[in-house]
């Protein structure tokens, strides 16, 4: 029977909810679910994931205070081996992408990245070529490492809280050190968690366009703001806002693509959204092919009007 170890991600004392998708994916294989929380002062995080696991292992050590791939990979591998894990899972977040291949190498395990479906204990589906094709991959090694595309797996229902136990970890010698983290501060919901996303394309013409035109719409809908690569590259928005093949993958209830052409690399990150609205002055823009509702027009005119109309409609 399979034994799973799910690597739980957290940031600034908070659970990254994307980790729950890894529990959901592992549950599809069947077997025992163990979780691993590494860090310092992470008792609350362990409690938060206990309802999803049979056992939560808490590894606290000064050497894993910051999430660095090299010491983390050693600790994860040691715990995985100690419990006889057959599968080690994490969300395909930036941190999971950074860390898990290293874990796979250390465990001598094959790895499937960013999976969108679990076929059986060794077979997984995953988007390739920017989501233009879906590959079915088989991992032939006894131990397997998998990162999970959070938008494809709904968080599992909470069960009875599993046991929480501390585990001693040894980060070993490391050739890397943490210097600092410059967080993007924002009062808006996280892109990954937002029910509504307003995404800016180059059509917004500059940071002013985002501020004066998109922000009021986002405020009205309590939405997160995202952006195309072009917008991030131009420095109009933080890099963390980029949605797409090489940015974040999101799937909100409602997605507004504003002044955004809909390049395949962008669409790869948002086509799973429940309802997509495109506003673009070019009727031929490819974004209209993935939009549920398209409106051809000048965003500087349409968006303020739309903001007012939504305010009214919501009463």
């Amino acid at each position: 029977m399979a034994t799973h170890l799910i690597v739980v991600e957290h940031q600034s004392g908070k659970l990254n909810k994307a980790s729950l998708s890894a529990f959901a994916a592992a549950a599809k294989v069947g077997g025992d679910l163990h979780a691993l929380v590494l860090g310092q002062g992470v008792g609350e995080i362990a409690k938060a994931v206990a309802p999803y696991a049979k056992k939560v292992h808490v590894g606290e050590h000064a050497g894993v205070k910051d999430r660095l791939a090299q010491p983390y990979a050693k600790c994860i591998t040691d715990v995985a081996n100690a419990i006889g894990a057959t599968h080690v899972w994490a969300a395909a977040s930036n941190a999971g992408k950074d860390l898990m291949p290293r874990v796979a190498a250390r465990m001598d395990a094959a790895m499937a990245s960013d999976v969108s479906a679990v076929v059986d204990e060794k077979t997984f589906k995953r988007p390739m070529w920017a989501g233009n094709v879906i590959g079915t991959v088989e991992l032939t090694t006894a131990k397997k490492v998998i990162t999970v595309r959070p938008t494809e797996f709904t968080a599992p229902a909470a069960g009875a809280a599993g046991e929480v136990a501390s585990v001693s970890v040894d980060p070993g010698a490391s050739k890397m050190s943490f210097v600092k983290f410059d967080a993007v501060v924002s009062d808006r919901p996280l892109l990954q968690d937002a029910r509504v996303i307003v995404a800016a394309g180059r059509g917004v013409k500059g940071p002013e366009g985002i501020k004066t035109v998109l922000e009021p719409l986002a405020d009205t809908l309590s939405a997160a703001i995202g952006a195309s690569r072009a917008v991030c590259d131009a420095g109009w928005a933080p890099n963390d806002w980029q949605i797409g093949q090489t940015g974040k993958v999101v799937a909100p209830e409602l997605y507004f693509a504003v002044g955004l052409s809909g390049a395949i690399q962008h669409v790869a990150g948002m086509k799973g959204s429940k309802c997509i609205v495109a506003i673009n002055k070019d009727p031929e823009a490819p974004i209209f092919q993935v939009a549920d509702y398209g409106l051809v027009g000048d965003l500087f005119k349409v968006i303020p009007e739309l903001t007012e109309a939504i305010k009214k409609a919501k009463g």
Binding site: A110, M111, A112, T123, P127, M128, G131, N132, V133, I134, G135, T136, V137, E138, L139, T140, T141, L254, K271, C275, I276, V277, P283, F288, Q289, V290, A291, D292, Y293, G294, L295, V296, V302, E305, L306, A309, I310, A313
Partner: peptide, 29 residues
């Protein structure tokens, strides 16, 4: 050790519609 067993096309989204103006869009939404 990662063996691709096959490929498929992603599920196609059903075609959307263009709306005439803001009022129509809000009504649809």
């Amino acid at each position: 050790r990662v063996v691709v067993k096959g490929f498929e096309e992603p599920a196609q989204k059903k075609a959307g519609q263009k709306v005439a103006d803001v009022a129509a869009l809000v009504d649809k939404l």
